[in-house]
Simulated scan of single mutants.
Amino acid sequence: MKRFPKEFADLLTPKGRRILDGKDTSVAGVLLDPVRRFVSLAGVVDAAKAAACRDLLDGALRETLVPMEDPIPHDSISGMTMNYMELLPKTVRVRTALLESRRTRSWKAAEQVGLVAMMHSETFAAFAAVVSGRTLRRGWGIQALCYGPGDYSGPHNDHHPEEEEARDGYVDMHLSLTMPGVDHQYLVYEKDGHLTEMTKVSTVGGITVYRLPFWHYTTPLLARRGAEASSRRWVLLGTFLDAAPNARRGTTVAPPGAPERRVVAPRA
């Protein structure tokens, strides 16, 4: 593979196509349930195409990545003044490709191999709209992350109370493209007030869709012994805001059969 397909739909299996067309009732609108904040989907992206995309991505973008690192604050313990009053901000160590600015090396490399066009394709957004069950706004954000050995994202909730358009919830969709040297990486997330749920995200072509905010974290990536050099997990990420009430036709991406003018269901 020398270029990503123009449409995300071209990567999908028949099962994935059924989801995209809104014909899989077990998946369509699953995140409308206020208790359901996360879904992991397997078998929806063709395995051979996913592996080809992974290899193309690794070759095109790996040298353009920039580190994103926020460690535990040095005074997180010494600064405490009361017992059992720990406060831990979001910690993370990962590398990222900057795809929001045309001036970056990452954007230029991604555009050259067709990644930007695919992540901005109608079917990329439509898949997120079907699973979320919501009408989503156009102009969604895109990003590529790369986890290496030991890279992780600590407990956080992705809540943005200062941003009017996101404070009541929004949708993230991740496509995982994992290199052969990875042993495992997991997503741990909250259910009934406890971080008890866990799913493997070190897949080749697995899709995860989130209705944020909710508490979760990504465990450190573990490499296979002796395979550290090829131990990377790539994540293609789209971030979608809910459409504004009474948004006009052509300004939103709606699930199949959904009205173009729709009031977004409030977050529980």
Results as ranks from 00 to 15, higher is better:
V92A: 13
Y170N: 12
T13A: 10
V27C: 03
D75C: 07
G148P: 02
S78D: 14
N83E: 13
L237G: 05
D192N: 09
Y152L: 14
E86H: 08
V171W: 01
E197D: 14
E162H: 09
D24R: 14
E162R: 14
G43V: 12
K90D: 07
S101A: 13
V27H: 01
V30K: 11
A42I: 13
T199W: 00
S121P: 07
P259L: 09
I142Y: 02
E162N: 13
A244T: 11
A247G: 06
L98Y: 04
D10H: 15
R54D: 05
T203W: 03
R224S: 11
A244I: 00
I207A: 02
R267F: 01
P14V: 15
M85L: 12
Y186R: 08
Y147E: 06
M198L: 07
L57K: 08
R62C: 09
A254V: 09
S106E: 03
D21P: 12
M119G: 02
A42Y: 11
G257Y: 03
R36P: 06
H160T: 07
A223I: 15
L98R: 10
H194P: 04
A243W: 00
A47Y: 05
V45L: 15
G133I: 09
A47E: 15
E162T: 15
T123F: 11
A265M: 13
A110L: 06
S153A: 15
H120E: 08
N157L: 09
L195Q: 04
G250W: 09
T218D: 06
E122Y: 07
I142Q: 00
R261G: 13
V27Y: 01
P245C: 05
H174K: 08
R103P: 03
A223Y: 04
S78T: 12
A51H: 15
